[in-house]
């Protein structure tokens, strides 16, 4: 594979961690693209200083919107392979190389990270036992696709997936929307184990309800 590999990093008020995230990514991918999603701190300045291409949303639009801005930037500048990587440093750069190898070897269009396939899942108990099983169930209702991890933000999109997938969901519902795209466009996908280290609790139960509301409203927008 001779495609350019670019990491898309949505970031909102991540000035404390963004420098470390960008620096760690620069050794693994060809280009780091940070989408500063309306931060009120100096996330954009620090990301730029660390060597990232920075696109700035003038207002906070949500993670799905930030990722799609990154997709559009990559499409306009030659395409290639895209890695979704969170700006808070919860993912591990070591997983990227493995995911890229899987993408090339398996001939799939998209590689999805899963916290439940590996032995080292550092997930809070309530999330593991209540929120994630519920999320998997909701995901299945909307997408008819069974995944071990319904809402993992670590993904690697090959050129075909990048061309086919367009997020319309601005918020966290994009994580379900992407599975819908995979099914509708017949994209080949593989799940691989990834390690996630939580700095904060992440998405809460209320956030899950917002996702369901956004998905229902989204059904009437098409």
């Amino acid at each position: 594979m001779n495609y350019m590999v670019r990491a898309i990093v949505p970031a909102y008020n991540e000035s404390e961690r963004i420098t470390g995230v960008v620096r760690s990514l620069r050794g693994v991918v060809d280009e780091v693209v940070v989408i500063d999603d309306g931060s009120t701190d100096d996330t954009a300045i620090r990301a730029r200083a660390a060597g990232a291409i920075v696109l700035v949303h003038s207002v906070n639009m949500g993670q799905g919107a930030a990722l799609e801005t990154g997709h559009e930037y990559v499409r306009r500048t030659g395409g290639g392979i895209v890695v979704h990587f969170d700006g808070d440093g919860q993912f591990q750069v070591e997983d990227i190389t493995r995911a890229l190898n899987v993408l090339g070897d398996s001939g799939s269009d998209i590689v999805l990270g899963s916290r439940f396939l590996g032995p080292s899942a550092h997930i809070p108990l309530i999330k593991r036992r209540v929120i994630h099983p519920l999320a998997r169930w909701v995901n299945y209702i909307f997408t008819r696709v069974v995944l071990t991890d319904a809402h993992n933000g670590f993904r690697v999109l090959g050129p075909r997936a990048l061309a086919e997938i367009r997020f319309t969901q601005n918020g966290m519902a994009h994580a379900t929307e992407i599975i819908e795209h995979i099914r509708e466009k017949g994209l080949r996908y593989v799940e691989i184990p990834v390690v996630v280290r939580y700095h904060e609790y992440g998405q809460k139960f209320r956030g899950g309800l917002t996702v369901i509301k956004d998905l229902i409203v989204g059904k009437f927008m098409k």
Binding site: I53, L55, H57, S58, V59, E68, E72, R76
Partner: peptide, 9 residues
């Protein structure tokens, strides 16, 4: 917002 971000970059 997206177009503005892309254009200024």
């Amino acid at each position: 917002v997206r177009n503005q971000a892309l254009q200024s970059e």
